[in-house]
Simulated assay, not measured.
Amino acid sequence: MPFSFRLTKRLGPLHLNVSRRGVSPSFHVGPVGYSPRGRRWSVRLPGPFRYVWSRRR
């Protein structure tokens, strides 16, 4: 299993995610989030679960 890491810095609704692939922004308002890099939406569900979907053009 390869080594990986992810660091998240939260600045209000803007989250900056730092990983091996670089820095990517995401926006979170309540349980709903959007990541422009992967064009993915996510909704946090109770417990450790979340629902993620993407919209491809």
Rank of each mutant, 00 (worst) to 15 (best):
M1G: 14
F3P: 07
S4F: 10
S4Y: 09
S4Q: 11
S4W: 06
S4N: 12
F5W: 12
F5D: 08
F5A: 08
F5Y: 15
L7R: 08
L7K: 08
K9V: 15
K9Y: 11
R10H: 05
R10W: 00
R10C: 09
R10I: 15
G12L: 07
G12R: 05
G12N: 07
G12P: 03
P13S: 09
P13Y: 01
P13Q: 02
L14M: 06
L14Y: 01
L14H: 02
L14Q: 05
L14I: 14
H15D: 13
H15E: 14
H15C: 09
H15N: 15
H15M: 11
L16V: 12
L16C: 03
N17T: 08
V18S: 02
V18A: 09
V18T: 05
V18F: 12
S19R: 12
S19H: 08
S19V: 00
R20Q: 14
R20T: 10
R20A: 06
R21T: 08
R21D: 12
G22W: 04
V23K: 02
V23T: 10
V23D: 01
S24A: 12
P25W: 00
P25I: 05
P25K: 04
P25F: 00
F27K: 04
H28D: 10
H28A: 14
H28C: 08
H28K: 15
H28G: 13
H28Q: 15
V29E: 00
V29A: 11
V32L: 15
V32M: 11
V32T: 07
Y34H: 04
Y34R: 05
Y34W: 09
S35A: 12
S35Q: 09
S35T: 07
S35P: 00
P36L: 07
P36C: 08
P36H: 06
P36Q: 06
P36G: 04
P36V: 08
R37H: 11
R37C: 00
R37Q: 12
R37P: 00
R39T: 06
R40I: 13
R40F: 02
V43F: 08
V43N: 07
V43P: 05
R44I: 00
R44Q: 12
R44Y: 01
R44H: 07
R44D: 14
L45R: 04
L45Y: 06
P46G: 03
P46Y: 02
P46H: 02
P46L: 03
G47R: 06
P48F: 03
F49S: 08
R50G: 10
R50T: 05
R50F: 04
Y51W: 13
Y51H: 10
Y51A: 15
V52G: 05
V52M: 10
W53Y: 12
W53N: 05
W53C: 06
W53P: 00
S54R: 14
S54Q: 15
R55S: 13
R55A: 13
R55T: 15
R57S: 13
R57E: 14
R57N: 09
R57H: 11
